[in-house]
């Protein structure tokens, strides 16, 4: 599967809250970030967690968020950043 996003693309993390095993941290959901790189292409952990194959493998991106975007006014320092590794189906374009 070829990656849908490229470094520099602005993305928004889907604001989902399904039950089950999820590797998208709650604090990133609904937040806008920037793709730094394709980190890997991996089987889906949401399937692996239940004994299934998780195939086909899907791209995982390093996505950077400003502290201002994550925490708003409460941010300790708005220019600091947090980077998380997020799976493609949790991301949508945020032009």
């Amino acid at each position: 599967m070829s990656p849908r996003f490229r470094p520099g693309d602005a993305v928004r993390v889907r604001a989902w809250d399904p039950p089950g095993h999820v590797r998208t941290p709650f604090y990133t959901r609904g937040r806008r970030g920037v793709v730094l790189a394709v980190a890997a292409v991996h089987p889906n952990p949401e399937e692996l967690a239940y004994g299934r194959s998780g195939l086909p493998a899907q791209p995982v991106y390093r996505v950077a968020f400003s502290q201002a975007e994550l925490w708003g006014e409460a941010a300790e320092r708005t220019s600091d950043r947090t980077v998380a590794d997020l799976q493609e189906r949790w991301l949508e374009p945020a032009p």
Partner: peptide
């Protein structure tokens, strides 16, 4: 088993 199964079991 997989690491994801371990994590799911912990959760």
């Amino acid at each position: 088993m997989t690491l994801d199964e371990l994590r799911r079991g912990i959760e």
